[in-house]
Amino acid sequence: MIVGIGTDLCVIERFKTMLERRPGLAERLLTEGERALSIESQAARFAAKEALAKALGSPGGMRWLDCEVIKTDDGEPRFVTSGSVAARIEELGIETIHLSISHDGGFATTMVVCER
């Protein structure tokens, strides 16, 4: 059963400018591992977190750093969650989270489907 669906689109140049204008913002949005990636991949991971928040019903109090996007050994993106995000996932009874990420032509786009 689908519990939630979320999508997000991020303009990579606008994301880059936002990080340059607001010192410390990257540290509040992205984990250390995510910050080590290219700006395109950083924007995609931010979009993935936005899409996940939408799929979870956008509850207040969720922390950006309680969610990290990693790649499996096969190159598939997936979430690693903790704290506030993991608590919301448990509250909704979510068992599987599907994540699709793409970035090209100056845009990063993501889609998330949560199932129980």
Rank of each mutant, 00 (worst) to 15 (best):
R35M: 09
R35H: 06
A36W: 03
L37R: 15
S38D: 05
S38P: 07
S38Y: 09
I39V: 13
I39H: 08
I39Y: 02
E40Y: 13
E40H: 10
E40C: 14
S41V: 07
Q42K: 05
Q42L: 09
A43E: 01
A43I: 05
A44K: 11
R45K: 12
R45Y: 01
R45A: 05
A47Y: 01
A47S: 12
A48V: 02
A48R: 01
A48F: 02
K49Q: 04
E50F: 01
A51L: 03
A51R: 00
L52T: 01
A53G: 07
K54F: 10
K54R: 02
K54V: 07
A55K: 02
L56C: 07
L56A: 03
G57Q: 12
G57S: 06
S58F: 05
P59Q: 08
P59M: 02
G61M: 09
M62R: 08
R63C: 14
R63F: 12
L65M: 09
L65K: 12
D66W: 13
D66G: 12
C67Y: 04
V69A: 04
T72A: 15
T72P: 10
D73P: 15
D74C: 15
E76R: 10
E76L: 09
E76P: 00
R78F: 03
F79L: 04
F79Y: 06
V80M: 13
V80R: 12
S82K: 15
S82E: 11
S82G: 13
S84L: 14
V85G: 09
V85E: 01
V85R: 05
A86K: 13
A86D: 13
A86P: 05
A87Q: 12
R88D: 04
I89N: 03
I89T: 08
L92P: 08
G93D: 06
I94R: 00
I94L: 10
E95S: 15
E95A: 14
T96V: 08
I97E: 11
H98C: 04
S100C: 08
I101Y: 01
S102M: 00
H103V: 03
G105K: 03
G105A: 09
G105W: 03
G106D: 07
F107D: 12
F107Q: 11
T109S: 15
T110S: 10
M111D: 07
V112G: 02
V113I: 15
V113A: 15
C114Y: 11
